[in-house]
Structure formats: structure tokens, C-alpha cells
Design a protein around this nucleic acid. Structure first.
Lengths: 148, 148
DNA sequence: TCTTGACTTAAAGTCAGGTTTAAGTTGTAT
DNA sequence: ATACAACTTAAACCTGACTTTAAGTCAAGA
């Protein structure tokens, strides 16, 4: 099965202009052309696009994704380099998850804060609550919000 | 304790120009000025800046953060609205974490892929492995990468 | 008082990651 | 053979979030 740029764009869920832009930026060196110059996407190209999507979700920039793709085009001589890059990116994503979990803790505190405010009709109550009255799970996060 | 824009920027870890930009965009309506027009940050302003940083980390846009800050300036009449916004943002962050965990699974597969390639000197081995030989934990993610 | 560093503003510049436009070409269906 | 949708390119435009620049003002120490 082969696809045009529009069909493949639909399949992976991006605009056709986005795939053309990626091609222009050198991220799609594997895409071939018809006699008339029309892009022809193959089934294996779908896998490459999935890898690009995956790396994009890790927060990697397009120029770094291009470097990875070009390495892959080089063949087996770049296996070590590609492994190192994947390991670094894995660590980066693990860190992003840890950061978001901290953010979630802040939001859980704010949720409690506004629920308590709602129950009393004023934010004065949660704002002025003593450390002892504050549910234990929120003490650390309130300390952090108010500075050292 | 009071701070100038430069001191407060250092304390929260952003450039002074960023705080001036936020002020220009209406995110800092609580910041007062000296006689001569110099911004004077108070201790409670630090808490606001922490809240702004927290909401930024959730992926919220500056214009939406401004709306939240302006609501807070309105006082207790906006408690319900603010609670709803916090709940929505909490859900959004929970979703982001779930998405990143999927990405992490992809990277773990790729890590195994390149480790196996490294051990054999070629990506042919992990690429052509049968579904039965593939470690069970990676079967789902490989299926997803290759399309339905 | 004078110097100096940090402050002020408006406006322009930067960067990433696209999207849109304009003019032209390809390829399929009738 | 012709129509028409979908393709092609280069170049301009857009958005968000800053950053830099230029010209000028404030405030604290010598």
C-alpha cells in the first residue's frame, strides 16, 4: 500500500503542509518521488513518521530529530550513537513526568484551597489556616509556594 | 522584605525582562510602584509568581493565566470559577502524565531495540524478530508503531 | 554633586514550528 | 480531451513567549 502526502497526513493525524514542511527541513529523506515529482509514502515510512511523532512528544527539537533520522540512514555504524540518544531522551521524559507530578501536587493543594474557600464563602479561611489545621499532605507544597 | 524587578527575577529564576513582559501583558496587576515609577515586589507577590510558574508548567497560555489572576483580583465572587479552572487544569496535567508514560514505553522499546542491535552488530536482528521472540512487554508498543 | 548600576518604556528582533498564498503541474475519472 | 482535485514550490505570514535595543530616569554610595 502506498500513500500521497494528503493520505499519509490523514493517517498519522497532521496537516499535509506539516509533512511538506518536515520534508523541507530534511526529516523525511526516506520519502521517494513519482516520475512527476509527487511524494510516494510507503508502509515503512509510516513507521518513521511514528518515530518522529514519538520523539516530538519527548520535547525534542526538529533539528535533533533530523540528526537522529540521518544517523539511521547511515546504517549500522551509528547504532551506539542512536542508543545513547534514546537513553538520554528516556531520562529526559522520566524527569518531565516527575516535574508534572510536582505540578499535580500543587494543583491538588489549590483544589483543596478553593473547595475550602467555597465551603466558607471566602478565601480568607484556607489562606489563614494554621500549619496544624492544614491537612498534612499539603504542608510541604504550601511551604514551597510561600518561599523558603 | 521588598524587592526590585531584578531581585525578584533572581529569586524565582527568570530574567528581569520576563517579569517586565508579564507585567506588560497584564499578569502582574498586584505589583505596586514607588514614587519614581519603579516596580516594588512584596512578599505576597512572590506567591503570585509561584502560582504563575505552576500554571505555566501545566501548559496554560499566558492569556489564560492572566484571566485567572484577574479573577483572583475580583475577590470571593469568583471562587467557583477559579475552582472549576483548577479542576480542569488538574485533569489536563493528569492526561499529560499518561501521554508521557506512553512515550516512555516507546522509548523503552527503542532502548531494547538498539541494545539488541548493538549486541548483534545490526538492526536487522531486532527489526526482523518474530512476535514470539519479542519480549512480551514490547509487543503492544511494536504493534502500535507499525500501524493497525 | 556626581557617578554608576539598575531601573523605565516602546519598539523591534528572535525562535520554533508551523500555515497560507500564489502560481503552476500531475494524474485520474468521465 | 477535458475537467478537477490534489499535488508541487518558494516565499510570505502567523503565534507565543520572550529578548534585545535605544533612549532616557532613578537612587544609593563616594
Amino acid at each position: 500500500m502506498i500513500y500521497t502526502v494528503g493520505e499519509m497526513a490523514k493517517r498519522i493525524g497532521v496537516a499535509p503542509s506539516t509533512l511538506r514542511y518536515y520534508d523541507k527541513e530534511g526529516l523525511l529523506p526516506f520519502v521517494e518521488r513519482s516520475e512527476g515529482g509527487i511524494r510516494v509514502f510507503k508502509e515503512t515510512d509510516y513507521e518513521w513518521l511514528q518515530v518522529i511523532e514519538c520523539l516530538k512528544k519527548t520535547g525534542m527539537q526538529l533539528k535533533d530529530i533530523r540528526a537522529f533520522i540521518l544517523m539511521a540512514m547511515e546504517g549500522d555504524s551509528t547504532i551506539d550513537e542512536r542508543l545513547e540518544l534514546i537513553i538520554r531522551q528516556r531520562e529526559a521524559v522520566a524527569q518531565q513526568i516527575a516535574d508534572l507530578q510536582e505540578t499535580l501536587a500543587m494543583l491538588d493543594f489549590k483544589k483543596w484551597y478553593y473547595e475550602t474557600a467555597k465551603a466558607h464563602g471566602t478565601t480568607d479561611v484556607p489562606r489563614n489556616i494554621t500549619l496544624e489545621e492544614l491537612p498534612e499532605e499539603f504542608r510541604e507544597v504550601r511551604r514551597k509556594l510561600r518561599g523558603k
